Simulated scan of single mutants.
Amino acid sequence: MLAAWVWPVNARAETVLERAARTGVITMGGRTDLVPYSFVDGKGQLVGLSIDVAERIAAEASTYLNRPVRLAFTAAPDANTLFKQVHTGETDLACGVQFTWEREMFVDYSIPFSLSGIRLLTRSGGLDGTAASLQGKRIGVLAGSLGDATIKSYAPKAVRVPLTEIDAAVAALQAGRVEALAGDSILLAGAVAKTGAKGLAVVPGVGLQRYAVGCIIPENNSTFRNLMNLAIAKLLQGYINGNRDATESVNRWLGPSGILELPPQVIKDYFQMVLLTNEQIRVPADTTPEAKP
């Protein structure tokens, strides 16, 4: 699959920041159906954790350039198209992207703002997620996705059923057309929350493959990459410190009152681990009671 990613890269006269300085725009690509990262809500607005993170990156670039910088979002039909657009410089930024070492050969990643893995969504009491339990079973996958590749190697005797979008995949599972869905565990949980599906469970307890989730940009944009990492680090540190803005931004998608309902301490522990691999950001603590998760 990765061999198909060796696209010719047009010579770029400008870096992402040079173009942003000239136009006031950073182009962002992504899907519009990936809860909780980037999706269209009931009001027809594009929302999600990835959008919040990208807005912070644009704000960091605006401060650096001393001029307003806005995001211009373009929907991408699938992950391969999105990677091609970022790799060739057609798109400046994409967030909510799974990290793999192979992909790192073609784009530059930010520090992560989420952690996920490949698991299976199935009916409660159904498959247990072991390779033996998948033998001969119809497993729904998004064609060309990391979940597709994982099932191909993990359970080669499973019958992989290509599907085009995650909401339709959940509907196929509920209708019995597939016996499980393989994919990103956070996106699977988000799809269940969005569709209101009942009687489903995510298995096994530990992901078949685990990875960080962050943003990607075209290679050789070191200054923009630094600003991107700084924006994400400030968000993570702000959440750890209990700052209201950071806390609300993360909790509305991941926290106890959000879509995934993760305990705040679990989120803090992961954010702290990410920051310990780089440098702690000095963000003043917010002492207002409402800011405490």
Rank of each mutant, 00 (worst) to 15 (best):
R70C: 09
W5V: 07
N226D: 15
G144I: 11
A231F: 01
I216K: 01
Q265A: 15
C215D: 08
V40G: 08
V192F: 12
L236M: 02
V202F: 03
G199Y: 05
S114H: 14
A3I: 08
K198V: 09
G242R: 09
W7K: 02
A231E: 04
G48C: 09
A143I: 09
P218Q: 08
G196Q: 00
P256M: 03
R12G: 10
G196A: 11
A13H: 08
V40M: 07
G89F: 07
D245S: 11
P68T: 10
A72E: 14
N66V: 10
E261K: 11
A54H: 00
A79P: 04
A13W: 12
I139A: 12
N226S: 15
A76F: 05
G48N: 11
M28N: 00
T91K: 02
D41M: 08
E90G: 05
G42L: 05
A132F: 14
N226H: 15
R22G: 01
Q174D: 14
N221M: 13
E90N: 07
V250F: 07
E102Y: 09
I267Q: 06
E14A: 15
A172K: 03
V192W: 05
S124Y: 14
G89T: 03
Q45D: 14
L2Y: 10
L227F: 06
A285W: 05
T63E: 05
V9A: 11
E90P: 02
H87N: 06
K268N: 03
I51A: 13
T88R: 07
K198N: 08
V40H: 07
L46R: 14
A193N: 05
A175P: 02
F99L: 09
A131L: 00
R119F: 10
I57Q: 00
P264M: 12
F271A: 10
V69K: 05
E279I: 14
T15C: 04
K292S: 11
A285Q: 13
V86R: 00
L200N: 03
G190K: 07
R103H: 08
S153Y: 07
A54R: 06
S133L: 04
R225P: 09
M1Y: 10
W101S: 11
K234I: 06
R282A: 09
V6S: 12
F271D: 13
G125I: 13
G44H: 01
N243C: 13
T100M: 01
F224Q: 04
R56I: 11
P263H: 15
E165M: 06
P36C: 09
P218C: 08
P68F: 01
V159H: 09
L46N: 04
A168E: 14
A132I: 07
G126W: 14
V250A: 10
E165F: 08
T88C: 07
G48T: 02
Q98A: 15
P8I: 03
F113K: 00
V161A: 00
H87Y: 08
P68Y: 13
T81D: 11
L46D: 04
A201L: 09
